[in-house]
Structures are given as C-alpha cells and as structure tokens.
C-alpha cells in the first residue's frame, strides 16, 4: 500500500531521505553563515567571531540600505529572477543559466507540491477521488506531469549548454575544476535519471523495464535531494544562495 506514495517509493525511505536532507541543508547553511560571520561589520572593524546573528543583521541592513539606487523588489525581479546582468554580458550564458535556474526552481516547486498532496492524502484523506491507487500519485495530476516534462527539458537544455561550454570553449575548458564539474555533472545526472525513471513507467517507451522503475525513481529522488538540496551549502551549489544575496546587498542594477 505504501508503494503508491512518493512516486512508488516507501514512505519510510522518503521520510528518512528528506529528514536527512533538511538536516544537512540547514546545518550546512548555518555553518556557512557562521563562516561569513567571522568577517567584520565594516571596513577595518574587528571580526564578529562567527556570529550568525551578526551576519544576518548586517545582511538585512545592507539589503534594505536606502542608498541603493533601486528598490529591493526591482533587484529581485530584474537581477535575480530575470538575471539581466548575465544577459547584458552573454546571451548564450544567459540562456544556459536562466533555463537551469527556472528549470530547477519549477521542478523543485512541483516536487514539493506533489509531496504536500501525498501527505494530505495519506494523513488527511484528501484527494481520494482524484488519486488513482496503484500508480505514482503525480500521474493523477496530468498538468503537473506535463509541466514536469516541460521544465525537465528546460533544465536539460541549460545543462547541455553548460556541458558544451566546458567541453568546446577552450578557455572555459581550461578553467574547469572539480568544483565546476560537480555542479554541472550533478545536474546532468539528476535530469537524465528523472527522465529515465519516468520513461520506465507503464505507458512510456521503456515500460519493459517497469520492474526496476521504483529503484530508478529512488535513485533519482535521493540524488536530487542530495545534489539539489543537501549539498548546496558544501559545494558550488552555494552560489544559489550566496550570489542572490551578494546582488541584493549591492543593490543590483545593470
């Protein structure tokens, strides 16, 4: 019975994986903030000794600094959600980054949405008429399935551009380190395993492998949680947090 939940995975596995992810993510994030908190409040001042509170206080005061030429909302939209600073410099890099950014965000949102639906169904008895038992719950929401596919391809486009840049542009290739490979490679594995585990389900062209669809989905989900969430504070994924904060503290702008 449990197998119908969480894309065919057992409830226990999912809860353990998600609990571990949340601990790793927030633990790592606090640790990073502590590291940033070793810096000083301002030029020439003493360091703050790793104060997370000091870091957050300063961060907020800088984000909402009245000296910024544009408002926080403008910065958020134009410089973080639309990423015009990248667009201004390179259209190719902007296409690469905006597709990865929005692909990642939307897939994350849809995954969380289905997770909430599954919890509501399991514990609240909701969506009883909508959900088809014996099938992964997401399949009971065709719109989400379609959007998952669309944004999966969006993410794939971005990741493929990123890989191509690192393979075929000499200077980018020469400058590539494990730090970069971990990010791009991780995203590539996630998006590919996502497609493969979906194609293994009944009704798709790899359905002859449907027996191993659940473990394939497990692999995809666990590495997604690992790469896309848990490892954020410890790898190049940290830029997902640090870069928008840097842009916000400087007030954005072209």
């Amino acid at each position: 019975m449990d197998m119908e939940y969480y894309s065919g995975l057992s409830f226990l596995i999912m809860i353990v994986a998600e609990f571990a992810t949340v601990i790793l993510f927030f633990g790592g994030l606090l640790f990073q903030m502590k590291k940033w908190g070793y810096g000083s409040e301002g030029y020439g001042k003493e360091g703050q000794g790793g104060s997370i509170g000091g870091f957050l206080k300063l961060l907020l005061s800088q984000i909402f600094d009245k000296k910024h030429e544009q408002g926080v909302l403008t910065t958020l939209v134009m410089d973080i959600l639309i990423q015009r600073r990248i667009l201004q410099r390179s259209v190719l890099r902007w296409v690469m980054h905006i597709t990865i950014f929005w692909g990642w965000i939307m897939l994350f949102v849809f995954s969380m949405l289905i997770f909430v639906v599954e919890l509501l169904h399991k514990y609240g008895g909701m969506f009883g008429d909508t959900i088809t038992h014996g099938r992964p719950i997401v399949e009971s929401f065709p719109v989400i399935v379609t959007l998952n596919e669309v944004f999966g391809y969006v993410l794939l486009i971005g990741v493929l551009i990123a890989i191509a840049r690192r393979l075929f542009i000499t200077e980018v290739r020469n400058g590539t380190t494990f730090y970069d490979v971990f990010l791009t490679g991780g995203l590539f594995i996630i998006v590919i395993t996502g497609f493969i585990s979906e194609w293994m389900r009944e009704g798709y062209f790899l359905e002859q492998y449907s027996a191993i669809a659940p473990p394939a989905a497990l692999f995809h989900v666990v590495i997604s949680l690992l790469f896309c969430v848990a490892m954020i504070p410890f790898t190049k994924y940290i830029h997902i947090i640090a870069t928008p904060l840097s842009i916000l503290t400087h007030g954005g702008g072209e």
Partner: peptide, 23 residues
C-alpha cells in the same frame, strides 16, 4: 585568516559562479 574581510566579502567570495566573464 578572515582578518580585514567583512562579512559581505566572505559571502561574495562564495558568490563567484566562476562564469569566466572577468577573463
């Protein structure tokens, strides 16, 4: 050490996406 670096600067060091534009 982190002496002389501000909290913003330590954050900024992690914010580099290594896009290579500066090159």
């Amino acid at each position: 050490t982190t002496e002389r670096f501000t909290t913003s600067q330590l954050l900024e060091i992690d914010a580099c996406t290594r896009c290579g534009e500066c090159l």
